[in-house]
Write a protein that binds this DNA or RNA. Structure first.
Lengths: 227, 227
DNA sequence: GTCTATAAACAGATAGAC
DNA sequence: GTCTATCTGTTTATAGAC
C-alpha cells in the first residue's frame, strides 16, 4: 500500500503546498503593493498568509523569488481579464466594428481595473515595479503590457484609418489608457473630490460613461486627422 | 566684537545649515520615490546629500519629519509650476477664453510634469504617498491637489457651460489629468512602445499635440452634453 | 511541507565630542 | 551644526527537528 504519511491526511496530491503557495502570493501582492517590496517584511507576508516565514524560502527560494511569482500571477490575471475582449482584435475589422470593439475593451479594463477591489493590489504592485524596475517589470512588459497595447493599437488603427504603428496612434491609445488608469492610481484624490466613499458599480458606471464619451471624441478627432 | 566661531567661516547667516537641509530634502525625495519611504535608509539619504546620518534627526526630528518636509517641498514646487497658469482662473471667463486657458494649463502641466526631469522624483514620491496615505498625503491633497483641481473645474465649467461642481465635470477633468499623468507614471511602458530612449522637448511636443487634441475633443463633447 | 531557533547584517535614534 | 560611536530592535536567510 502506498501512503503519504509525510503530508497532512486531508491534503490532495498538490493540495496543501499549493494552497500555501497561493496564499503567500496573494498576501505578498497586497503587502508589496501597500508598503513597498523592501518595506514589507517576509514575516508580515507569512503572517498574512497564515504560513511560516521559512515557507517563503521553501516555495520561492527567497523574497526575490516571491516577487517574481507575484509578477507571473499578475500577468496571468491581466491576460485572464483582458484576453477575451482583445481576442477579437486578431481578425480584420470594419471601422464600425473596431469602434464597438474598442468600447468593449475599455469597458473590460474599467470593469477589471477600476471596479474590482482585487485590482488595487495588482495596480499598486505594478506601479511600484515601474518605479524601481527589476526582472519582474521586464516580465510584465514583455508578457502583458506590450502584447496588449499592440492589439489595442491594431483595433484603434482599424477604427480610425491611421497606421497601427504610427507614433500618433501609440500616443493616442496610451493617453486613453491613462484616463482609465488614473481612476485606479489616483483614486484617492478622485474619490475625495467627488465625495465618494467607495467606487462600486454605480460609481463605475459614471466613470464608464465619461470615458466612453472621451473615447468616442478622441476617435472622431483621430479619424479626421487620418483622413 | 561679535564673532561666530561655532559656524564655518564662509557660511552666511542661514547658510550651511539651510544648504544641508535642502540637500537632505532633495536626496530624500529622490530615494523615497525610487525605493520607497521605508526601504530608503536614513544612511543612504544622508550619504546622497553629502551629510551625516545624525543631521536628519537634527534638522527634521527624525525620518518621519523628513517625509513631511518633502511633502511641503512638493507642494511649494507644484504651486510654483502651476500657480501662474491657474491664477487667471479666478476671474470670470468667456467660453473661448476658458478654452484657451485650459490649453495653457495643460501645456504647463506637461511642461512641468512630463518634460522636466526633476518631476520624476516628485511624481514617484506623490504616487507612493497615495498608496500608503499618511499625514504627508493629507497635506498634498489639502494644499495642492484639491485647490488646483477646483480651479481647473471652474475653467472647464466656463468653457463648456456645465456646472463646475457637477460629477461629470469633475470626472472629465480628472480623466484629462490622468492622460497627462500617465506619461510620467507609465513613462517606462510608453517609451518602450514608442522606441524612445528619453522624453526631451521633441517627444514632449508630440505628447502635447495629442493631449491638446484630446482636450479639444473632450471639451466639444462636454459642451454638446451640457447644451 | 511546516516549523523553531539562530546567525549575520542592517535599521533609526541618540549621547556626547568638537 | 556636524560628526563618531553605540544602543536596541528588526531584517532575511538558514540549519535542523518533526
Amino acid at each position: 500500500m502506498v501512503a503519504t504519511p509525510k503530508t497532512a491526511p486531508f491534503a490532495p496530491a498538490e493540495g496543501r503546498g499549493e494552497a500555501t503557495r497561493l496564499a503567500l502570493i496573494h498576501a505578498a501582492l497586497d503587502l508589496f503593493g501597500a508598503k513597498g517590496f523592501e518595506a514589507a517584511s517576509t514575516r508580515s507576508v507569512a503572517a498574512a498568509a497564515g504560513a511560516n516565514v521559512a515557507s517563503i524560502a521553501y516555495h520561492f527560494g527567497g523574497k526575490e523569488g516571491l516577487r517574481l511569482a507575484c509578477a507571473d500571477y499578475v500577468i496571468a490575471t491581466i491576460r485572464g481579464a483582458l484576453g477575451p475582449a482583445l481576442a477579437a482584435a486578431a481578425a480584420p475589422l470594419t471601422p464600425t466594428a473596431a469602434r464597438d470593439l474598442l468600447a468593449r475593451v475599455v469597458e473590460a479594463i474599467i470593469g477589471f481595473l477600476v471596479v474590482r477591489p482585487e485590482a488595487q493590489a495588482i495596480a499598486r504592485f505594478v506601479v511600484r515595479e515601474m518605479f524601481e524596475p527589476t526582472e519582474a517589470f521586464e516580465r510584465l512588459y514583455a508578457e502583458a503590457f506590450a502584447p496588449m497595447h499592440l492589439r489595442f493599437c491594431a483595433v484603434w488603427a482599424a477604427a480610425t484609418g491611421a497606421p497601427a504603428d504610427a507614433p500618433a496612434t501609440k500616443l493616442a491609445t496610451l493617453a486613453m489608457l491613462g484616463q482609465i488608469l488614473y481612476f485606479r492610481v489616483g483614486r484617492r484624490v478622485a474619490m475625495r473630490r467627488l465625495g465618494w466613499s467607495d467606487i462600486g458599480p454605480g460609481e463605475g458606471e459614471a466613470i464608464r460613461a465619461i470615458l466612453l464619451a472621451h473615447l468616442d471624441a478622441a476617435l472622431t478627432a483621430a479619424r479626421r486627422e487620418a483622413a
